[in-house]
Design a protein around this nucleic acid. Sequence first.
RNA 1: GCCGAUGUAGCUCAACGGUAGAGCAACUGAUUUGUAAUCAGUAGGUUGGAGGUUCGAUUCCUCUCAUCGGCUCCA
Length: 645
Amino acid sequence: MADKVSVVLPDGSKKEYSAGMAISQILRDFNQALAKGALATFLNGRMVDLSEKVQEDSEIKIINFDSEEGKEIFWHSTSHVMAQAVQDLFPGVKLAIGPPIKGGFYYDFDTQKSFEPEDLARIELRMKEIVKQNHPFKRRELAKSEAEEIFRQKGENYKLEILSELEEDRVVLYQHDDFVDLCRGPHVPATGVIKNFKLLSIAGAYWKGSEKNPMLQRIYGISFATKDELDQYLKRMEEMKRRDHRVVGKELELFSISDEVGPGLVLWHPKGAMIRRIIEDFWVEEHQKHGYQLIYTPHVARLHLWERSGHTGFYQEYMYSPMQVEDEHYQLKPMNCPFHILIYKSKLRSYRDLPLKLAELGACYRYERSGVLQGLFRVRGFTMDDAHIFCKREQLEEEVIKLLDFSLSMLKTLSFEKYQIFLSTRPDKSIGEEKNWEKAQDALRLALEKQELEFEVDEGGGAFYGPKIDLKIEDVMGRPHQCTTIQFDFNIPERFDLSFVDSDGNFHRPIMIHRALLGSLERFFGVLIEHYGGAFPLWLSPVQVRVMPITDEQNSYSAEIESRLKEEGFRVERDDRNEKINYKIRKAEKEKIPYMFIVGKKEVQDKNVSVRRHKKGDLGRFDLDEIIQKLKEEVKNKTVQPVAI
RNA sequence: GCCGAUGUAGCUCAACGGUAGAGCAACUGAUUUGUAAUCAGUAGGUUGGAGGUUCGAUUCCUCUCAUCGGCUCCA
């Protein structure tokens, strides 16, 4: 072995060190300040601990908290510290797994005791001690049999199960203080690094995610490199709570879900219904522009229809039980497609009719297990902004491009410009000819590429009846929400024996695309509420202007303004209660009404209004015609105020 | 569905074995007010529902319903 090794340092420079020197030492020599923030390193592209020794000519790159890898390492190490704290405080608790996740980490434990919120504080205290003691994380590679012996002695049967599934002969353990865990690593150098953490919640989780396995107790947590980041995170959590559509929906009287009606069934209150109506009008207008024909279909149909469509087979678990009417069974619809198909089938179709686009805001009912319901995000009765496109195979790609454009422009208007796109391909269990699948998948892929849209491929993630594109929008808080879906269906056209006469005079089977752009109006509304934090842009606001006289001397003038605004097509309210103007302003601000028109003596005299904008404050005095013009522009342009978080 | 937590006035929360209390909202009155809460008064609850323990239950127990956080799944 050479005495000296040549090391390429993070800045690209080269330097010689004696072989066997630890990376941490080399980094300290390289740059004290940078070394301090290092959690681990890439050694020749391989993620390793800082304690790893350099034995050959190498390249070193620092991993710090700012990178994905850094966060994962940091969170993973925090989960080890938490697990130790839990075992210290509650002897006998068994360890399952404790990985880092998107936003933090968790650890699953098996114990008779059920953790309570107060326990989190105790665990945090113990964690603080462990952090203070600054135990180094020690890596140890050993034979699998040795590791098995260690965990057998500790009675860690979940670890033994994991070990038994590993193919390698040698495995890695990490130890800090007296806590040992099976772990590939790397880890932060010592527990002292993890100063800023917070345990967030306790939840049940099945071992390996399967309902057949025992239920474990999971503790979620988060940690950061600096206190600032942790504070910011906690602030963001607060903000998310404040924006929760269930909270805002109640405060602003947008919707409710009543016990007496049933879980997952939404009552749209006047203000929420107003917003929905505006979105629907917009939707209808856009669909007509894009060559769709609007239809209406019933909420129930003979069970037979659902048998023919195949839903009673593959979709039964999500369907409400059928109801009996005059010895016939009827089924509440979980989807709209069979109806649309029957409209397609109502007459002989020619290639000249294609692509035929039938659209409907169709109310569907699906049985969702009680535990999964969540505000407007997950309900049992919802309205799909559904459409079905019947076309020839050659039209596929063009139709998908049109769909993507349509969806993205609509979402842009509703102020969603960030999204993730997924292309899901053929699953193992599926129907249809291979060549159809390939053509359809190619069409989807080509369309995405032509539009220069980035996407991820979810291999085998398609429905059994066809491949699909899913689009998730990202809200201001950076959370993704399932939105647009574009799905091919090779199943239903077969089952209903769909056909059209092509230019060659022969019958052919059309391709069918199911698509929803907003997904469901309920969920989309929930997303919108949180995205805007309840402060809807002017064009969507259920109340756009509130006129507020300062004293009752201005009541008649304010009534004049109110009726003028109404004539101009605005949604107006007047607050002529016997209250101080500050009180009225406070009310209007809390209700997030975009514009407040304040009229006092001066305004009556000069025949104008004082205008106050929600969140911005006083804009000064305006001539009524002038401000009406301004607001009309704002509505017409569907202007969105910056949606700050 | 499963695990855990929660459920008190329209809303936010308090009380805790001795038949519930505040703030806001509502209503009434006074006040006539200039850019985020004027004052006073009135009314409002079989403490989610059912059963049990007890002289007595909002409080303890059982069941049930719903909500919340997850597991899983999806529009």
